[in-house]
Simulated scan of single mutants.
Amino acid sequence: MAPRIVLVTGVADQLGGRLAARLADDPEIERVLGVDTAPSSVPRSTRVEFVRADIRDPRIAKVLTSARVDTVVHAAPRPGPGAKERNVIGTMQLLAACQRAETVRKLVVKSTAEVYGGGADAPAVFTEQDAAAKGDAAEIEGYALGLARRRPEVVLTIMRLAEIIGPHVDNALTRYFSLPVVPTVLGFDARVQFLHIDDALAVLERATTHDLPGVFNVGGDGVLMLSQAIRRAGRIPLPMPKAAIGPATRLTGGGVELSPSLSRLLSYGRVIDTTRLKTAFGFTPKWTTTTAFDDYVRGSTHR
């Protein structure tokens, strides 16, 4: 069943804002509500109705019920200061509101491949059957799965996105590759996999407009070695002991703050299998890992 009234969280971010705008362009969708605490990144020319609200506030339930929302796209989880409270507590409140709202029949959760963790003993390729590691992403997915058990009529789709990249994408990873000298972990050359932001938008749009329940990995085909990516970005690698990476990135400028998850990625890498995405979900990314990264390099504003 096609959605009629959609609520998208996290519209202050580039991904959430652009997704809300795309959904508002769909003539079969009557209303799109974009929720965030900061001003929306959605152009005013769209039909998106911006609602300044904090999903950690129980009053988010009033937004769902008063608008008779039938589809919720939770695109808000993001790193940064206060991420634990914002992401996990916010998700708890949002899903509690979804459980009480009788009109809600679909939930799409933007998750991340970080849910698998990573380390020296990690598998070469993660599939959806691999157990989630501890962390915010695993907690968020756990709460979503709990809602699906309590409300089995709700269609739940969880999309585990690889590292998002592309022209004008601003996150810790793109800032890392924009450093004039890029610190790397001595003795390691991680395998990395990227997802172009256009494919991330397309896959989340499909998850919203179609009933495709389940958990799906999303990433571009192929991998790059970290050393290859640095060379393609025209940067110079600087190998150093792992403990020195964080301080070194701060000293080199660029506003890079390496989270524990990103530090693991740059040491051990992470590759996800996307077979179910192509078969059960019916989507093949347009951009490979390599072409997505090259498009980021061409459009980078930090060169």
Rank of each mutant, 00 (worst) to 15 (best):
A2V: 03
R4L: 05
V11S: 03
A12E: 01
D13P: 00
L15K: 02
G16Y: 00
A21M: 04
L23F: 04
E28R: 15
I29Q: 02
D36P: 05
A38S: 14
P39K: 05
S41E: 01
P43D: 10
V48N: 04
E49P: 03
I55H: 00
R56W: 05
V73M: 02
A76R: 01
P79T: 07
P79G: 12
P79K: 00
P79E: 05
P81S: 10
N87P: 05
V88E: 03
V88I: 11
V88K: 01
I89M: 11
G90W: 00
E102C: 12
T103S: 15
K106R: 15
L107Q: 00
K110F: 08
T112Q: 04
T112A: 12
E114D: 15
V115G: 05
V115M: 04
Y116K: 04
G119A: 08
P123E: 11
T127C: 02
E128H: 04
E128A: 06
K134C: 03
A138G: 07
G142C: 03
L147H: 01
I165F: 10
H168G: 09
H168V: 09
V169P: 01
N171Q: 03
A172W: 07
F177C: 12
F177L: 13
S178G: 15
T184S: 14
F188T: 14
L195D: 03
H196V: 09
D198W: 04
A200D: 01
L201T: 08
V203Y: 00
L204S: 01
R206T: 07
A207V: 03
T209S: 02
D211L: 02
L212P: 00
G214T: 00
V218A: 06
R235M: 12
P237R: 12
P239E: 13
I245C: 09
G246K: 13
T249D: 10
G253M: 08
G255K: 05
S259Y: 06
S261G: 13
L262S: 07
L262I: 14
R264G: 14
S267P: 06
Y268A: 14
R276P: 00
F283L: 11
F283Q: 01
T288K: 11
A292T: 09
D294A: 11
V297W: 10
H302Y: 13
